[in-house]
Design a protein around this nucleic acid. Structure first.
Lengths: 347, 347
DNA sequence: ATGAAAGCGCTAACAC
DNA sequence: GTGTTAGCGCTTTCAT
């Protein structure tokens, strides 16, 4: 099997294979890329070529192949993070769905840095991606403009852009329903209603704004007005939100709407420290889902974004490019929790 | 800026640029790839070419470029999962470190499916990766053989192989120390010592075996013998381990060594359900770290794998290929927890 | 200081 | 049924 010594590395080509098999490069090419039936190459030759390729450990050079064909069958994705459930699931499912469609996925992680996002998008275009999924980007339109010029199809995911189609969660409805749930629970558990705290995210972030709108709507419905100082948007970083919590003067009974599991890390750390000073009447709900966070005592529910539905829509848009730059909304899945155990939603 | 309509998609080449600039393709090429100083091209021309490329939204075709040069500067990685802290961090840090070295990272997720792992490795080789990091693969040697034949350097990560260099956690020591910690805690909290349960993983999995060895060693040191039925290795899946826990007849005071955060998901779900039947004297420790799991009441500590150290070693091996197939061990970081709060390790 | 031209490994149209 | 050949877009000698 392993014929090379691994260091010399003069890679085998179809010319080498043709020579060994005593045939022509084009025969080898068509046999190895599956177009040989319509070239009416004999089964005998096809078999021999396949066997030799196998024996020699041949691997086609896709750079050369892609250069020559007109389609690359490569699809790109940029994501801000891997290490949380939401984006991790997006990347993982995207790859699986791409492969199921016989496309080659390449995902790259850009850490919410605008310049890196753009540079990565540029690199992917240079590698001839046919389409590019831009997830949670801080400046999606800049990427959209560039890709349009290069003739590359872009779909924005999670955070919308204005010049390319976007698939986003219905953050408004998700947040409104989650807020309703929290309000219902404090009423049941504490026998009274009061405005919640909103913690995490950034005022200029589209999703944060939408969620805040849902949060406010649910309060209005309940006849509650939210004091300004209960809305605290100092980003997503756990450390920052932990500090925010430590400084916060929480009433004996209070409840929090946490805007992402990343922020929640900080919130719960602070919460747990507080517990030692005696039991506090605290409840929270969180946008986004995490399996361990779902088991925390004070958690009354999580709004999970429907990753599968979002990606199905993304691939639908890839296959059927729409006019203009529509923004498609995907409902979230509300997952209520009672005493650290997930319970079915009753409507 | 955006000159194309995005659908026509006849991509701009250096020939187009040369024509517009009234110069030759080779001038354009050398200006755009930075080799123009040593070709002594005038600043004026260089500037003009750069400007025109910018204006036209030109993006180099790296398939053609890579085909021609001798180095691709592409490094590949396969990982089993994205959506947990350990592998998420590996993928994310790998990308950052590759970029810092001016390499193009391509990571792909293979879901612990042996055939997909091999197919993905093959695809990456076809895309001309210079080296390939094979993370947590079920059959690393099969990939190693194939890549050796293709002249591609392989480094195994997390799970070792026998034909290529490997970087793995010191699972034995990590597990031994974690087991010691749990034993110390039950003694302090319950006033007695007894053998722990070992839950999760597979008997044929290298890391599981090493951890079990550490687990047994710590018990021996303490003069405890572990009944066979306390060692339960039915894989990593949360559902399976939840079922395992439900069937388990746990004594009033007991403690568990959980072999991965993925298995822990199931364990804690079952644990929480149990809590309702009254307080149980339960403690656990877990191999691998998760920010939310670190806050659970019964958790006495987690053994975190040192991802940065592992990847530094990986890139070191990429830069300085060793003789043979050494197996390099990286110590884990023990993170003790008291009452849902991380505490510094005292030695 | 710049251009012409060969060729990287592959595909596909065309020839036989 | 199978071989020959002309590029794909770029890099890189070599010539001027």
């Amino acid at each position: 099997m392993a014929e090379n010594d691994g260091t010399s590395a003069k890679r085998l080509t179809i010319y080498d294979l043709a020579q060994i098999a005593g045939t022509s490069p084009s025969a080898v090419s068509s046999v190895l890329n599956g177009t040989w039936k319509k070239r009416r190459i004999s089964d005998r030759l096809a078999e021999r070529i396949t066997r030799i390729a196998e024996e020699q450990g041949y691997a086609v050079n896709l750079q050369a192949s892609v250069l020559r064909r007109e389609r690359s069958r490569i699809v790109g994705m940029i994501v801000p993070k891997y290490d949380n459930r939401y984006f991790g699931a997006i990347a993982e499912q995207f790859e699986a769905m791409a492969r199921a469609r016989d496309l080659f996925p390449v995902v790259t992680c850009t850490r919410r840095e605008a310049d890196l996002e753009f540079a990565a998008a540029r690199a992917l275009v240079s590698y001839q991606v046919e389409s590019l999924i831009v997830t949670g980007a801080t400046e999606p339109d800049r990427i959209g403009d560039f890709c349009r010029a290069a003739g590359v199809r872009v779909i924005n995911l999670d955070l919308p852009g204005s010049n390319m189609p976007s698939v986003v969660s219905d953050n408004f409805t998700g947040a409104r329903d989650l807020t309703r749930l929290i309000l219902t629970r404090i009423r049941r558990d504490f026998g009274k209603q009061f405005p919640l705290f909103f913690i995490g995210g950034r005022a200029y972030d589209h999703n944060t704004r939408e969620r805040l709108r849902g949060f406010m709507t649910a309060h209005q419905e309940a006849g509650l007005s939210v004091p300004e100082d209960r809305i605290i948007m100092h980003g997503y970083a756990p450390e920052k939100n932990e500090a925010v919590m430590d400084e916060l003067d929480l009433p004996d009974h209070s409840a929090i709407f946490v805007n992402s599991t990343i922020a929640l890390e900080g919130v719960v750390r602070a919460l747990h420290r507080r517990r030692h000073d005696g039991p506090t009447g605290l409840r929270f709900g969180c946008f986004d889902w995490d399996p361990f966070a779902a088991l925390m005592q004070e958690n009354v529910g999580m709004a999970q974004q429907d990753v599968s539905a979002m990606l199905l829509k993304v691939f639908d848009l890839v296959d059927h490019p729409p006019e203009g730059a529509p923004q498609i909304m995907i409902p979230c899945i509300l997952r209520p929790i009672e005493n650290g155990e997930e319970v079915p939603l009753r409507s």
